[in-house]
């Protein structure tokens, strides 16, 4: 597995992390543990989306560069 492929796997797992963090924070908010958790939840879900966008950009960039094995 090349660094490119491992990086894409990493990006996938990071997306999962932020989806999970978003879920954890929103659950905490609904359990009445403070309004800050609502922001953390919404922020985490937004970051998860950004990471997906970055992954797609990285995939296109490395394909253009001919780094595909």
């Amino acid at each position: 597995m090349s660094l490119r492929q491992f990086h894409l796997l990493f990006v996938t797992i990071v997306t999962g992390l932020f989806l999970g963090l978003g879920g954890w924070a929103l659950k905490g908010y609904y359990d009445h543990q403070g309004g800050l958790l609502a922001w953390l939840g919404a922020g985490s879900l937004a970051v998860a989306l950004l990471v997906v966008v970055y992954g797609a950009w990285f995939l296109r960039k490395t394909r253009r560069m001919g780094l595909v094995e």
Binding site: M1, L3, F10, I13, V14, G20, L21
Partner: peptide, 17 residues
Amino acid sequence: AGLFWHFVDLVWIFLFP
């Protein structure tokens, strides 16, 4: 070196939650 660094970062991604 990047593969090692990614692995170490991945360990943290599991350690944090």
